[in-house]
Simulated scan of single mutants.
Amino acid sequence: MGYNPTLKPLTSILTSQRSTTGTYVNAAGQIATAAIDTARIDWSEGTAALLIEAAATNLITRSAASSANWTNQSATLTNKTDAAFGVFPGLLVASTGSASDRAQAAGVLHAGATDYTVTAWYASGTSAQIALQVSLASPATSIKVSGAPGALAVSGTVSGGTVSGVTNRALGGGRYSVSVTYRVTAAVTLSWGMGPNSATVGETMTAYAMQLETGTTATSYIPTSGTTVTRAADICSLDVTPLGLAAGFTIAVKGTVFGTAGVSGIVANFDSGAYDNRQIIVLNSTGSGLGAQAFAGGVSQASTFTAYTPGTPFAAAMRVGPNVFRYVLNASVGADDTSVDFVPPTILRIGGSLASQIPARLRLKSVLLYPALVSDAALTALGTV
């Protein structure tokens, strides 16, 4: 490629900022907590990646399941000492004869026509089924996902709202999580609950915890113990002034972006200290395209977007400089633009920009920065998973 890079851990060269603590999954599969202004290296997908997330709030005021924290809805509840994922004692929920028997977290006031995502952590028991559900008589509201552990799906009729997505995750050792994205038609207070979905007396499951946040993306666990808690956004940056990028550069990033926080979600942003002068790799606001753009003096100089499905791995590479711009995503090569005004950057921002635009959740596996304009063949290789 004409340049031999020096490989270093991302955390050794990036400046990390986050004004609160934040959780992540460590190499042992446990939920760990990173201190304020400390980068999170996350193993939730089985490999190490730098975790970047926008600010999020767990609206459930007591997240960990226990007979003291949650309300009994006709089930038999027994506190456990599992220490699941290193943090959850667990609550055994046994049916007393109805499939609707469950343990229920505190209610949350929902706004109408607003996206919410609820995530529940649980373990299988003697019941062949699991249910995560919410039910309210007035105004009539009912959402239920149920099925075999690790395979929950919408069941019955959804009333008073809509469900746009259900994501199941097997976490090992008979433990799972499920995330449900939904909307309600009008403002209403709802309480989500978990149970064994069984009419057989004594059949069980174990509830561990629950998180409810606005938006369509499930983010890392935010523990609560009496009030809502907000995890601040992650901000990572690198001073690139010493690299001398006046003649242009090439950036290659690999990872997975899971969604935006309502606006475009920037994966990598180069700028000169002014938002008007930037070169970026960005997920568009609808989540349908992952592209690259260049601006000078607030004027768009080049823009290429390629179809992308959030939650899938990507490899993106951008070559940019004076009258040079080309972008490759997952081996799809964009057109060469030879009419580009270029303002050399002085800083690289990972997962955001001077205008914020932080992805809801980004797992970044690698960043390669070349202070040179690599060949077409090298660019294509860099932009291939």
Rank of each mutant, 00 (worst) to 15 (best):
R319A: 12
M1D: 08
M1Q: 06
T312R: 06
V178N: 03
V374K: 00
S303V: 10
F270A: 04
A56L: 02
A140L: 15
A302L: 06
L373F: 09
T286V: 13
R62F: 03
Y308N: 08
A186N: 14
A268Y: 03
S288M: 05
A49C: 00
L171V: 03
R102V: 00
M318I: 14
T15P: 02
V282C: 11
S332P: 00
R326A: 13
P359C: 02
R175M: 12
S177Q: 08
V374L: 11
L290G: 04
V267Q: 09
A49G: 09
A32F: 02
V263T: 15
R326M: 10
G291C: 10
E45T: 14
V282N: 11
V180F: 04
G156Y: 09
A68N: 13
P89N: 08
A84P: 02
T306G: 01
G172W: 11
Q357D: 14
M1L: 13
S138A: 15
F88H: 13
G156F: 08
S339D: 14
S198Y: 08
D336K: 00
D115I: 06
T216S: 15
L379Q: 07
T78N: 11
T119Q: 02
S264I: 03
V320I: 14
P344Q: 06
A148R: 07
T61M: 02
T119A: 04
S366C: 03
I266W: 10
N72F: 02
A316N: 05
A153L: 06
R18L: 07
A296R: 07
L109W: 09
D341K: 11
Y370V: 15
G125M: 08
A128H: 00
S191N: 12
T33L: 07
Y24M: 08
L109N: 13
A27L: 02
N330E: 11
G311I: 06
G156A: 10
G22M: 05
S356L: 13
A105E: 03
F88W: 13
N168L: 05
V324C: 01
A170R: 04
I36Q: 14
S63I: 02
I143H: 02
R102M: 13
G215P: 04
A381S: 14
S179V: 06
V93F: 05
G297L: 08
L245S: 11
V178K: 04
